[in-house]
């Protein structure tokens, strides 16, 4: 079982690493996404995006270097609850035709309750890993062979999630287009 818990830790670490790098690489797109949420305005958007990127990078690197700690647990909860709250506010407003701005394979074209459920599932996984933190180790403490295996497996799981999501999206889009053209 510790193997699965370690995989969970690496999975979350890689997930945040990819979402934060995606935010940096597509900076303007993510600024636009945050603006579309209509919660914060003006120059504040830029600073909040900087904070989110720093927070995500912190979670990612601290998971790799120190494993699960109280500090990265708190930052994780803060970030995920902030994202979920922002999505919930826009769902209640009916402003759903905007990108979620999640980044990398987690990105969605529109907001839905599914995104909040996904975030809650991630929170539940993290809480479980926090409870089991004594059985998990930081990635840096493992041998090179183990590090590589964990990184590859966690990346594979993350891409698999992305593939399933893309297949679903492709099917829905194809059906819509077929319906419109028929």
């Amino acid at each position: 079982m510790p193997f699965l818990w370690n995989l969970g830790v690496v999975f979350i670490g890689i997930m945040f690493l990819t979402t934060s790098t995606d935010k940096v690489m597509h900076w303007r797109k993510h600024l636009g996404s945050m603006e579309a949420y209509k919660i914060i305005k003006g120059a504040l958007i830029k600073w909040f995006l900087v904070l989110f990127v720093i927070g995500e990078l912190f979670i990612s690197f601290s998971l790799f270097l120190t494993g699960i700690t109280f500090l990265n647990f708190m930052v994780f909860l803060l970030i995920l609850f902030t994202y979920s709250l922002a999505i919930l506010i826009n769902l209640l407003r009916g402003n759903t035709n905007i990108s979620c701005g999640c980044g990398s394979v987690l990105d969605h074209d529109h907001l839905s309750i599914g995104l909040i459920i996904r975030n809650l599932c991630l929170i539940a996984i993290y809480i479980f890993l926090y409870i089991e933190k004594n059985t998990t180790v930081a990635l840096i403490q493992l041998s090179l062979e183990e590090i590589l295996s964990y990184i590859l497996l966690a990346t594979g799981v993350l891409i698999l999630y992305g593939i399933i999501r893309e297949i679903r999206q492709n099917v829905v889009l194809t059906r819509k287009i077929k319906k419109m053209l028929s």
């Binding site: 074209d109 590859l152 891409i159 893309e166 492709n170 889009l173």
Partner: peptide, 20 residues
């Protein structure tokens, strides 16, 4: 295997952009 998954994901992403 991971590389293959990555290529498959990239292909699907390309396809969904095309559909959009």
């Amino acid at each position: 295997l991971v590389g293959e998954l990555g290529i498959f994901y990239y292909f699907l992403k390309y396809n969904s952009n095309f559909l959009k």
